[in-house]
């Protein structure tokens, strides 16, 4: 859609990675983590995260539940599932293979 095209395809993988490492997080938490880790390079239009989250939920990679935060607000918290870990493993593998291949081409071309 916008300037985040490059990111769109790999957004699920990033989300899975973050959830796998940090444990349950709500949508805003996930956004902040991506920004922080990537030094604001990978900035997504924040709303686009949600359809992606919901698709992943339907796919069974993550599951969600409503919790009440410390300042008494309802937030939807996402957590990675076993199927999600498998998916993450597979995608990470594929990503590394692709980037390695692209790197190689870039260096040797």
């Amino acid at each position: 859609m916008k300037r985040t095209d490059a990111l769109q395809g790999s957004l699920p993988m990033l989300v899975l990675k973050i959830l796998n490492r940090r444990g349950p997080l709500h949508g805003y938490g996930i956004t902040s983590h991506i920004e922080k880790i990537s030094d604001d390079v990978l900035r997504v239009e924040e709303g686009s995260l949600y359809p992606a989250l919901h698709r992943m939920e339907e796919g069974g990679w993550i599951k969600a539940k409503w919790v009440t935060t410390e300042n008494n607000r309802r937030a939807r918290v996402y957590e990675i599932t076993a199927a999600g870990r498998k998916q993450l493993e597979a995608e990470e593998g594929r990503w590394r293979a692709v980037t390695a291949a692209v790197d190689q081409v870039l260096q040797q071309a």
Binding site: E45, E46, G47, S48, H54
Partner: peptide
């Protein structure tokens, strides 16, 4: 920063 929340809502609902 959130963008077009209405459109995202539609997209989410369709996804679910």
């Amino acid at each position: 920063r959130l963008g077009n929340s209405l459109a995202y809502r539609e997209e989410s609902r369709d996804a679910r």
